[in-house]
């Protein structure tokens, strides 16, 4: 059987097109496999500030919609970050403990975790607490924090949130479970680990001056 030249060229083109199509699919699959979904432990690392090698680790079980957490953030944590975290003395770990009594705290936690995935946890945490009064009554987080987080960045964060929703929910649940295991019954609850020992501080937040004295005592030991 003899094929006309044009038929042969056509067949070659079809085969080439199929080959290119198969190759691009394989490349896409390879790319997807090389960028795995973030694991819950990745989220914890990305929600932490400071050096892991700091002599003191402070874990804060917190709820973005809880007024006491905002107060603790504004009056204690900001100074702690400036004076102890940024100077390498404290490794500060955020643990999500969204309370069921707050209707938008899960939403805020998901948003903060997505921001963490983009390396923007610190700025988003600050924005969420600074603007808590604005978004807490209606859950309109974007509107409330758009003055500090640019719209393009908000979109990126929401894209990550949508893309990794299951992983983000798992990370939040993991923090919550850890809190329940440690008998956390209010937010904020703070744990301080130094010299191999972990101590729970009284729940509901701690005055910065008192925390400072305790941290200085630990650092002197």
């Amino acid at each position: 059987m003899k094929w006309p030249l044009l038929d042969r060229i056509g067949l070659l083109l079809v085969v080439a097109a199929l080959a290119v199509s198969w190759d691009s699919q394989a490349t896409a699959q390879t790319k997807a496999a090389s960028t795995p979904a973030p694991s819950p432990s990745n989220f914890t690392d990305r929600k932490s500030l400071g050096s892991k090698n700091a002599p003191i680790t402070i874990e804060v079980f917190s709820d973005f919609q809880c007024p006491a957490c905002r107060n603790f953030y504004e009056t204690t944590l900001k100074q702690l970050i400036d004076n102890y975290v940024n100077t390498g003395k404290v490794y500060l770990v955020h643990r999500d403990f969204p309370l069921d009594m707050h209707p938008y705290s899960h939403q805020a936690a998901r948003f903060a975790n997505a921001a963490a995935e983009l390396g923007q946890f610190e700025s988003v945490e600050r924005a969420l607490f600074d603007k808590q009064d604005t978004w807490a009554p209606n859950g309109k987080i974007d509107d409330a924090i758009s003055s500090t987080i640019p719209p393009a960045q908000l979109k990126k964060i929401h894209d990550v949130e949508t893309q990794h929703l299951n992983e983000i929910n798992a990370a939040i649940e993991r923090d919550r479970t850890m809190g329940i295991q440690r008998n956390v019954n209010q937010t904020p609850t703070v744990y301080v680990t130094a010299h191999g020992k972990t101590e729970g501080l009284p729940g509901g937040g701690v005055d910065y001056q008192l925390l400072k004295k305790y941290l200085d005592f630990l650092l002197r030991q």
Partner: peptide, 12 residues
């Protein structure tokens, strides 16, 4: 160090 913890409670 008991007084650090107790001070935090009294302060609350």
């Amino acid at each position: 160090d008991y007084h650090f913890f107790f001070a935090m409670m009294i302060d609350s």
